[in-house]
Amino acid sequence: MSTPFLHARLDVPGRLHATVTADAGDVVAVVGPNGAGKTTLVRCLAGLLPDSGELTVDGRSWSTPHALPRDRRVGHVVQGRDLFPHLSARENVAFGLRARGVDRRTARARATTELERLGVGALADRRPHQLSGGQAQRVAIARALVTEPRLLLLDEPFTGLDVGVAATLRVELARHLASYDGVVVLVTHDAVDALTLGTRMVVLEDGRVAQTGTPTEVAARPRTDHVARLVGLNLVAAADGAGLLAFRPSAVTLSPTEPSGSARLRWAGQVSQLTPYGDGVRVGVRTSTGQDLIADVTAAAVAELLLQPGTPVWASTKETAVVRYPVDA
């Protein structure tokens, strides 16, 4: 059995105990609630946070002996702006090459080429404060890619961008990542990022890996509430304790009284919130057992049932609409 391109067993006491592996060309989407350890994981991989684990990338150990960030071949794009404010876009991109001993002229030429590749060649002489959020993020990605990292860390690269800008950048990034032969670790809050860009998904919760798999697998059979909410599924524990049940909000029916029919799963509860969703309304229901469910219903149904926060309702769904799977398959 050959060693994977990326093998990381990261250990930060009290914060992170996670094993992540990936093959060359993989895009590992890391998702999880705030405080789950996503940024800690990225910072460990970059060498910015000390950890007592093992880390092998492309056949080289970065953990024994511990490699300094500058000796790792890592590209790091963080949420927010960390372009050097006193340097132009071109100088920012050339920085990593200059730091590694590339001569000035070559560094400038390669920086210019990389900026052009990311569609911001015309902005090469601008300072970061003269760039929009999307432009700055493209420069940051160029700065990370130009050093030809073996590991590319993208920590919420679309956070803080306008929706349209984020969507465009996501499409472009997918194209650039397709030709990238290292491993990408993509931290994201957005199920769309994970599903469109990821080839693997790692779900972190409380500093531990709660689930791994392809994004499609994880999205179809989420094992944590967080991922279920990300992909818009209801997730409940089976009444007999044997496994988890996932079902779509559109498969949930709301009724004022207990629905009849044995082939239905049902919960008594109260409406917790109502938000417009597509043509209809997304209704949050908190069950008497403390479970949060969502149901997508028509505006007509909301009017007919006189739904408002606090209204008692029964939520039910057909057995046939439910995917049932074991907790730890």
């Binding site: 970059a46 060498g47 910015l48 500058r70 590209g75 790091h76 960390d82 050097f84 920085f95 990593g96």
Partner: peptide, 15 residues
């Protein structure tokens, strides 16, 4: 944050 960005880009502390 900028020191960290420089370190990841391969710069020594003096650089």
């Amino acid at each position: 944050a900028f020191d960290e960005a420089a370190a990841v880009l391969g710069a020594t502390r003096w650089h």
